[in-house]
Amino acid sequence: MRFGVIVFPGSNCEMDCHYVIEKVLGQEVRYVWHQESDLRGLDCLVLPGGFSYGDYLRCGAIARFSPVMEAVRDFAARGGLVIGICNGFQILLEAGLLPGAMLRNNSLSFVCRFVHLRVENRDTPWTGKAERGQVLRIPIAHGEGNYTAGEGLLDEMERRGQIILRYCGPAGEVTPEANPNGSARNIAGICNEGFNVFGLMPHPERASEEILGSTDGLFIWESALAAAGV
């Protein structure tokens, strides 16, 4: 499987993603500079975390107009797999490839720690290797992960199964105490209606080796490999 990791000015998790894909998963991977527009030959695009364009104006607001984003839009429209992690998630929201928007964390603090996540829908290319209701332990690191959308839209997303991950306690209990940022309905990760585009605030690339304290991120990467028939 061939991955492309998109690099915007200010991305800072692209090497972690590249490393996990190449060294841990043993797959082909290349960096895609934000000025590029040719994505031929790639099976999955990764929009990594960081602070693209300094997070000026709003997180992801300027990156979404990078030349590569037009190609990402076409790639997604053809059903290609696209995963946005943290700042990558924010860019996908600003680009309208995923519904909703991000607000500052309700604590106003940057939160950097492990969280527990409940898998709400395993019938997606991103979660097929996990059990429904399985609890994953993966770290977050963000100041703006307070997901918001209109109540009507949230209901629609629930009905269609687009809510993929929710912040929860160690036993999977979805409570206000387990919500690290004030996110609506404890949402940590969502898909588009076609389920080929996935955005999540937690960093699976930081939880893909024992030495980092968790390998639960592998459920997400390996699900994508399985979905692509690898």
Binding site: L103, T148, G182
Partner: peptide, 9 residues
């Protein structure tokens, strides 16, 4: 209707 964490603080 949109929460404003900075305003609340």
């Amino acid at each position: 209707g949109v929460l404003d964490p900075q305003g609340q603080a």
